[in-house]
Structures are given as C-alpha cells and as structure tokens.
Simulated assay, not measured.
Amino acid sequence: MEHRTDDAGRPALSPAEFRTLYARLHAAARGTAGRRGALDSITPEGVRAAATEVRSGRTVSLAAPVETRPGPDSPEPARHRLTAPAEGEVPAEGLDFARDRFEMNVHSDADSHLDALCHVIWDGTLYDGIPASTLTPDGASVLTVDLARDGIVGRGVLLDIPPLHGVPWLEPGTQVTAEDLAAAEAAHPGLRVGRGDLLFVRVGHRRRRDELGPWDTARARAGLHPTALEFLAEREVALLGCDSNSDAAPSTTEGVAFPVHVLAVHAMGLHLLDYLQFEDLAPVCEEQGRWSFLCVIAPLRLPGATGSPVNPIAIL
C-alpha cells in the first residue's frame, strides 16, 4: 500500500485508506473465523512441533515487574499491601500467616497484560460482529479472557527491530513497517514466521525506560505501522506481543488513536500482549543463535474480564 507522510515524515493513513486496509485484513482472517479468533491457528500438531524448540531447557520471563509506584506512564499504579500480620503483632510462638491484597488497572501503559477479543470496540461492535451491548458493568459476556483459559502454547518468534537500525531502541513515535519485520526475520537465516506462531516484536521500549526513566507513553511511543499487520495476515500468526503496546503514538491514522489494536483485535481476531519486556530474552536468543522458542502464556481465569495480567515464559 502506498501511503502519505505526516509533517514529521512518518507514514500516514486517511480514514478511507484505513477502512480499506481494515476490510482487506478482515477478509484475509475469515479463513480461521471463530470465537477464538486467530488462536484457532494453533493446532495440537503445532504445539508438539513447538515443544521441539526446547534444547537447553532455559526459561525466560517476558513480563515486566508490576508497577506499584506512580509515574508518567502509570498514574494509577497497581496497589499491593500486606494485610497481615499487623506491624508488631507477629506471635513469638506457633503458627501465623502473611497475607496480602493486590489491585490493578489491567490495561495500563506500564504493566504486561493480555488484551482479550472483547477489549476493542469499533463501529459499535466487538470482534466477529458481536454487539458492544454485550459489555455490562458486571463484565463481558463473550470473547473474554476465558477463551484462553487452557493457556496459549506455541512457537514464539522474536523479531528484534532496533539492531536493524544500529540503535538500542526505537525513539518514541517511530513506526515499525512490514519491511522492518521481514528484514528482522531475514537477519537470521532459516527463521520464518509461520501459521500459528506467537509473534513478538521488540522496539526497545523497556530498555529506554530502564535507562532514561519512564515518560508519558500515552503521548509518545514506538510501535507498529498499521500496514505492518499485512505481514501478520500473510503469515497467519496466532498472537502479537510487543514491549510497547503495538500502536505507535501519536497515531498517524486520521481519526483512529489505536489503529493497530482495531486491525489486530477487531479485524483479525488477534489477542495482543502489551508492554512485555524482551531485555532478558534477546541476549539469550543471541547467545544461542536462534530466535524461536516454546512459549507458554497463562492468563488468569477472571470471569467477564477484557484482559489479564500475564507472565509469558519462553523455554529455549
């Protein structure tokens, strides 16, 4: 797709161009249409094949620590407190228990989480044409995280974008193109993203945050350009995860603040994993000379939830 650029020279889409792209991706995804969306592309045979990726037995978390202190990207951080024992009330003898309570905004701009298929509302509907009226104060009634209650297990593939440009991270506002994804894949001979894969895209968000400190990511962050979703559609991936939230900010799609979310979740039925961290995984992939691995994702079983905190584990 030919696209214009905005005043900063970034690729831009008009409303009409975006809707044309939406229609094309939606049509391409209909081959695996179902209430589980793209997760249906993960087959038992695919899971067994993914298990052969395990060679060293090393496990690596893809989740960032949960933020419990306010910051520019987490104005309402998770709250965690010890509820017992009270200070000074620990018995000198006998049994007692330490207990705690945890509360969080699942879809924050700092914490690793999974977006369910009921998370994105577009033109009054959810994925698969489900009316948005199915969302109530008591929770969603369909397309919830319960679709993944048995876990998401498959071959994970990490595409590391910053090294392509000789930088440790992409600056906020940078958009990853389909050409970037193809180049990151081609940088590792023998690697090819395929049907049913769990695709992870590193933009270096976490490294930048660790080294320079948090910033207002709602206003500026690196992410994917909407047309990059054509790479995912062509390869029939099952899921997309990013160390940002997949969408770049500010958006260059006129009138749509989160175009990648609309395309991935609503048009293609892709569950998204937002604000992961790959700073532990990338060095291991480099050391072992391979960028694919068995991956296990186990969201919480939260009835009616539109998302869940998550700690994906790569097993190499």
Rank of each mutant, 00 (worst) to 15 (best):
L199N: 02
V265A: 10
Q277G: 06
A222S: 12
L273Y: 04
G255M: 06
A282C: 07
A238M: 02
W169F: 13
D160F: 02
H261G: 10
E254Y: 12
L263V: 06
E185F: 00
E279F: 07
P163C: 07
A220M: 04
L181Q: 03
P214M: 13
L240M: 10
L273K: 07
G194S: 11
L273M: 14
E211M: 09
G241P: 05
R207S: 09
R235K: 11
R209E: 14
P226H: 06
A183D: 13
A298G: 07
L170P: 00
D210V: 08
A264F: 02
Q288S: 13
I297F: 03
G204Y: 02
V193G: 01
G213H: 09
D197S: 12
R202V: 04
L273N: 06
R208S: 10
E286D: 15
G213W: 14
F258Q: 13
A178F: 07
P168N: 10
L224K: 02
T253C: 15
T227L: 07
Q175I: 01
A233G: 13
D160M: 03
R301C: 13
R219D: 13
H225D: 03
A248I: 01
P189T: 08
M268P: 05
F231W: 15
L212R: 14
L181E: 02
G223M: 04
R208N: 13
A249N: 07
R290P: 05
F200Y: 15
C242R: 02
R209T: 14
R221G: 00
D274K: 08
L191T: 04
L270A: 05
D274T: 09
A298L: 14
G269K: 05
L224P: 00
R206E: 15
A186D: 12
L164T: 13
E185Y: 00
G241L: 05
A178C: 11
F278C: 02
V176Y: 00
Y275V: 05
S246P: 04
P162T: 08
L212C: 13
L270R: 06
R290K: 12
R219T: 15
T253S: 11
A186F: 07
L300F: 09
A267W: 03
D280M: 12
V237D: 03
V260G: 03
A264D: 03
C295W: 02
H271S: 10
P250W: 11
R208K: 15
V203G: 05
W291Q: 02
P189R: 08
A298H: 09
E236M: 14
H225S: 01
A222R: 01
F278L: 09
D180K: 06
W291Y: 13
R301T: 12
P168M: 10
R301G: 13
A282V: 09
L272Q: 10
L272K: 11
E185M: 01
L164V: 12
S244Q: 01
A298N: 11
V203H: 02
P214V: 11
H261V: 06
F278E: 00
R208T: 11
E211T: 13
A183R: 10
G255C: 03
E230Y: 10
P168D: 15
V296P: 01
C285W: 01
R235N: 05
E179W: 13
C295N: 10
E171G: 12
P214I: 06
E185T: 00
P214A: 15
D197T: 06
P214Q: 11
A298R: 14
A267V: 05
E286G: 11
V265I: 12
F231M: 10
G190D: 12
E287V: 14
H188F: 06
S246I: 08
